[in-house]
Simulated assay, not measured.
Amino acid sequence: MIVVKTKEEIELMRQSALIVSKTLGMLAKEVKEGVSTMQLDKLAEEFIRDQGALPGFLGLYDCPSTLLCSVNEAVVHGLPTQTPLKDGDIVSIDCGALMNEFYGDHAYTFEIGEVDPETKKLIQVTKESLYIGIREFKINNRVGDVGYAIQQHCESHGYGVVRELVGHGLGKKMHEDPEMPNYGKRGRGKKFVEGMVVAIEPMINGGTHKVRQLKDGWTIVTQDGKPSVHFEHDVALVDGKPEILSTFAYVHEALGIVSTEEDEFRQKALVL
């Protein structure tokens, strides 16, 4: 059952999402060669608690960490480790926060040092597909419209769209209806209605779409060992149009990136 949010609840969810956005922005300055994902996890937990929120993942489904950090061929759900990041790595950091009884949940893929051109292109195309998908989250469209748009963009570049893992509704529970696959057919699936809030999150592989789970019971990796990229935003349906509640602006500011990609999805300017 889809849980529709009031405009007041959506504003509370924006606060939760922005806690995650600020956490990712803080981490952007720390994600570098020689740093372990375990170190990043400790920084994130402390930062989220200092903001008056709770880590959204820690303890959820028995998750042992605040962050899920997926390096190179890891797709999602990578548990933090003591292994230092090295030049040429990529790491997808997925983070959640619970505040005002609502969850924020989104993700960004970071580059460590000099990343090879093929992987840079995978990152660029995956990020593009996120906004292409968000554009289809509008009144009278359906779940399949978002998935179709993401799938077509990524597969046109020869990439694999993960089937086993999907986006989801978001609210007082981390995972609500509807499921939001990154593949599909236009006009299929549940219809979008005013007040819905979803996490749209393309998980795109540099090769095959097929994945497997490691023995830790969490980490999902590509079957062919090629890299995977993950971006995620929290999006509400407001006045019939997609309104992004999360932002990569804090990450972009930390990394010196100039971007206008979120502008069309905001009804008012974001104040950092």
Rank of each mutant, 00 (worst) to 15 (best):
Val3Thr: 12
Lys5Asn: 08
Thr6Met: 11
Glu8Cys: 01
Glu9Trp: 03
Leu12Phe: 05
Leu12Glu: 12
Arg14Gly: 07
Ser16Cys: 10
Ile19Tyr: 00
Ile19Ala: 06
Ser21Tyr: 04
Gly25Met: 08
Glu30Asn: 04
Val31Pro: 01
Glu33Leu: 00
Val35Leu: 00
Ser36Phe: 03
Ser36Pro: 03
Thr37Val: 09
Leu40Val: 14
Lys42Val: 10
Glu45Arg: 15
Glu45Asp: 10
Phe47Ala: 01
Phe47Ile: 10
Arg49Thr: 13
Arg49Cys: 00
Ala53Gln: 05
Leu54Ala: 03
Gly56Tyr: 01
Gly56Leu: 05
Phe57Arg: 01
Gly59His: 11
Gly59Lys: 05
Asp62Asn: 14
Asp62Gly: 12
Ser65Ala: 15
Ser65Asp: 10
Leu67Phe: 07
Leu68Ile: 13
Leu68Cys: 05
Leu68Asp: 10
Cys69Ile: 08
Ser70Gly: 05
Asn72His: 02
His77Asn: 11
Leu79Gln: 01
Leu79Asp: 01
Leu79Trp: 00
Leu79Gly: 02
Pro80Ala: 05
Thr83Phe: 03
Pro84Lys: 04
Pro84Glu: 03
Leu85Met: 02
Leu85Tyr: 00
Gly88Arg: 04
Gly88Gln: 04
Gly88Ser: 13
Ser92Arg: 08
Ile93Tyr: 02
Cys95Leu: 03
Met99Ala: 10
Asn100Gln: 07
Asn100Phe: 06
Asp105Phe: 13
His106Arg: 00
His106Met: 13
Phe110Lys: 03
Glu114His: 14
Val115Gly: 05
Glu118Ser: 11
Thr119Leu: 05
Gln124Asn: 06
Val125Lys: 07
Thr126Arg: 04
Lys127Tyr: 13
Glu128Pro: 08
Glu128Ser: 06
Glu128Ile: 06
Ser129Lys: 08
Leu130Arg: 05
Ile132Tyr: 10
Gly133Val: 14
Glu136Asp: 00
Glu136Met: 15
Phe137Glu: 09
Phe137Asp: 09
Ile139Tyr: 02
Asn141Ser: 09
Arg142Ser: 12
Gly144Cys: 12
Gly147Thr: 09
Ile150Met: 10
His153Ala: 14
Ser156Glu: 14
Ser156Thr: 10
His157Lys: 13
Tyr159Cys: 05
Val161Arg: 01
Val161Gln: 03
Leu165Val: 14
Leu165Trp: 08
His168Lys: 07
Lys172Val: 04
Lys173Ile: 09
Glu176His: 11
Gly189Lys: 02
Gly189Asp: 01
Lys190Val: 13
Phe192Ile: 13
Val193Gln: 11
Glu194Pro: 10
Gly195Ser: 06
Val197His: 10
Val197Arg: 04
Val197Met: 07
Val198Ala: 00
Ile200Cys: 01
Met203Asn: 04
Ile204Trp: 03
Lys210Asn: 15
Lys210His: 11
Val211Ala: 04
Val211Ser: 03
Val211Thr: 15
Val211Tyr: 05
Arg212Met: 15
Asp216Gln: 06
Asp216Cys: 02
Gly217Ala: 03
Thr219Gly: 06
Thr219Ala: 06
Val221Tyr: 03
Thr222Asn: 02
Gln223Met: 05
Gln223Thr: 14
Asp224Pro: 11
Pro227Tyr: 07
Val229Met: 03
Glu232Tyr: 00
Val235Arg: 01
Val238Met: 09
Asp239Tyr: 10
Gly240Pro: 02
Ile244Cys: 06
Ile244Ala: 04
Leu245Ile: 09
Tyr250Gln: 12
Glu253Thr: 11
Gly256Thr: 08
Ser259Asp: 15
Glu261Asp: 12
Glu262Asn: 10
Glu262Ser: 04
Phe265Met: 10
Phe265Lys: 06
Val271Gln: 05
Leu272Lys: 14
